[in-house]
């Protein structure tokens, strides 16, 4: 098999995306689909261009204040707890299965409760996001700290290294691929949590708020505009994490390619 060129790696998916857009436009126009049901891509583009200030305001509210705040809080909390738990084998054995199970639950269901606790503004959104990302991050960090080559660990012992030295020089770096794995999951969850929580009450801005109100007014083009923004944001965040991962864990077999 010949290797994929960079051109092919970009051209094929891009071409496919463009083809879908063109077909969409043609179908909507030829069959005269009501714009309230499915607006054509050009109308969505026009709606976006015409309401940049609103989209920006919503984006700041939902992504920056809600999702990103929750993301760093949840990640930091998971990191701190993981470093503490790591010192107690008994706790680790007990907490791993519990955290694993919690990570599989629809924690997003806490959204209405968080709105009740922390009010309509971004604090409740950040709280939902923080709890949602906490468990996958905890599981991944603990898993990463445990995933140390026994030979590497013995080596540190022959040097008489301290716990902190081993953590800093061996287990920390070895856990990084796992940390990034968790972060990739967490970024997707963060956006979902921040938007869902707005469905349960929000100030008069935010992507989730805009989607529900514009949907109520049958202004579907504006709903699509928010969808485009959220999709681009989701992909960009993922890309950012993947990009940092590539630079930081360049040594890992999965990144050497």
């Amino acid at each position: 098999m010949r290797p994929d060129t960079t051109f092919e790696k970009i051209a094929w998916p891009l071409g496919f995306g463009l083809l879908v857009l063109v077909l969409w436009e043609v179908v909507v126009r030829v069959f005269g689909v009501s714009p309230a049901i499915l607006p054509p891509p050009t109308a969505i583009g026009a709606a976006m261009a015409g309401s940049l200030p609103i989209l920006w305001e919503d984006w700041v509210q939902t992504v920056v204040k809600g999702a990103l705040n929750g993301l760093w809080m949840g990640t930091l909390a998971a990191l701190i707890l993981a470093l503490i738990i790591d010192r107690f084998d008994f706790l680790k054995r007990g907490l791993m299965p519990v955290a694993n199970f919690f990570a599989a639950l629809p924690i997003v269901g806490l959204a209405p409760i968080m709105v009740m606790w922390f009010g309509f503004d971004w604090h409740s959104k950040a709280a939902v996001v923080a709890i949602m990302v906490f468990f996958p991050m905890l599981v991944n960090i603990l898993g990463g700290l445990a995933a140390v080559d026994p030979m590497h660990r013995d080596l540190m012992r022959t040097y008489g290294a301290t716990h902190i030295q081993t953590l800093h020089k061996l287990r920390g770096p070895a856990a990084l691929p796992f940390l990034f794995n968790g972060l990739k999951i967490a970024t997707s969850l963060a956006l979902i949590g921040a938007i869902v929580a707005e469905y349960f009450g929000s100030p008069i801005r935010g992507m989730g708020f805009r989607i529900t109100t514009e949907m109520g007014r049958l202004a579907t083009d504006m709903v699509w505009a928010e969808i485009v923004v959220s999709a681009v944001t989701g992909t960009a965040l993922y890309g950012l994490v993947a990009g940092i991962e590539k630079r930081v864990t360049f040594w890992h077999p999965s990144q050497r390619g």
Binding site: D154, Y159, G160, K169, H252
Partner: peptide
């Protein structure tokens, strides 16, 4: 008291460190 240099069956070098970085590892510790 750091009396041992131990060499394992596999090289066991840390992949995130250069060769020089790996040799420095015990020295840093």
């Amino acid at each position: 008291s750091r009396s041992y240099g131990y060499v394992f069956q596999a090289a066991g070098l840390y992949p995130w460190r250069t060769i020089a970085g790996n040799i420095k590892l015990p020295l840093e510790i």
